[in-house]
Design a binder for these strands. Sequence first.
DNA 1: GGCACAAACGGACCGTAGTCCGCTTATATT
DNA 2: AATATAAGCGGACTACGGTCCGTTTGTGCC
Lengths: 206, 206
Amino acid sequence: MLDPLSRQLPLLDQPPRERSDAARNREALLAAAARLVEEQGVDAVTMDSVATEAGVGKGTVFRRFDSREGLMGALLNRSETEWQALVISGPPPLGPGAPAIERLHAFGHSRMELNLTHAELIRAAGRAGSRSYSAVSFAAMHMRYLLSELGVRGDLHFLATALLAPLEMVVLVQQTRVDAIPLDSVKAGWDDLVRRVVCPEVNRPV
Amino acid sequence: MLDPLSRQLPLLDQPPRERSDAARNREALLAAAARLVEEQGVDAVTMDSVATEAGVGKGTVFRRFDSREGLMGALLNRSETEWQALVISGPPPLGPGAPAIERLHAFGHSRMELNLTHAELIRAAGRAGSRSYSAVSFAAMHMRYLLSELGVRGDLHFLATALLAPLEMVVLVQQTRVDAIPLDSVKAGWDDLVRRVVCPEVNRPV
DNA sequence: GGCACAAACGGACCGTAGTCCGCTTATATT
DNA sequence: AATATAAGCGGACTACGGTCCGTTTGTGCC
């Protein structure tokens, strides 16, 4: 039985628990969408096909995920969460335990791979893609932490954004697919950018 | 009369001149689209309304611009071209005549303003937006030129991309609209990034 | 168990992007 | 001027994202 106070002051509460049928349908829809992506590619994920595949009505898909972009975002969110766990508590050098500079390089490389792997999905997710608020804010927060560990001075908020920006999917796709630059060269370029930003000479105490 | 050779070897030729009615319709469509954007915002620019407004059929809009994104891209292309002209031959510090470092700062600031001004249009243009090949390659080329003038060593191709990336609309919108950072702070942050990249100590001859 | 009600459901419906194909017209040639 | 032909044209048609609202169902309370 729920605490009666929770019922009376719902605004102070967690939003009320999701109804069981709703939860079941959400899982079924995510599973159906993931399967469609796997088997037929992102373009085959229409709201109708996902609904049919999950055995629910179309309205339900929109109720759960608001829009196609929202559905794609939810799909992305799963791997984003796994990745964040690796950064927070996975093995070094991505996870804790390695020197900050190594973690920083591993962070960038790993993010590039993640964004390229999910390029189609990120594109389909639009605003809900890699620039969703939670994804951006986690990455930026971690980046600021690593930069401060390295003694970088300046506007860490902006510097984090600036180092993250070339890891965005649109930029990576341009470089690796349009300009046909090997991924390793892109990584090396980013490493050089990092070197310049953390360079001791430009971070002299004022 | 055309050179007979041109008729016989069309592959060596410029693509045949656009038919006069086609050219007229293209202008009418661009004008109609620009007017709709101006008066009612980007969302009001549906392919039907543009066609009606220009007094042509819907199929004609698609024939000329392939897609809604293509139409938006064509609209953007006009201001992009004007901007490129300013960079190439406009007044300093954006145009030639100022020291390279000042031109670089002006370049970044100007690009930010341009991208923010056209944020809606760029979003609606999707792939045809600010990352269209011609826009990206012009900006990158100019950036490489300025960096080389400044004696920057390293992978100029990547460094140009890295300095351009934080000027992308999605990043700027995140910073100025979501995080509510004043544009001047963003500019200052970018200036600092530039300082680090062109810093003499990190560009010592090997 | 029975009741009340908010939440969830589903599918008909709407607007828009994009396709298709038979008709029209500009242009080059004679 | 007449003709041939490729390019252009237009609007009916399809598919998909998104909305709406009458119906169903899970949940907490008695």
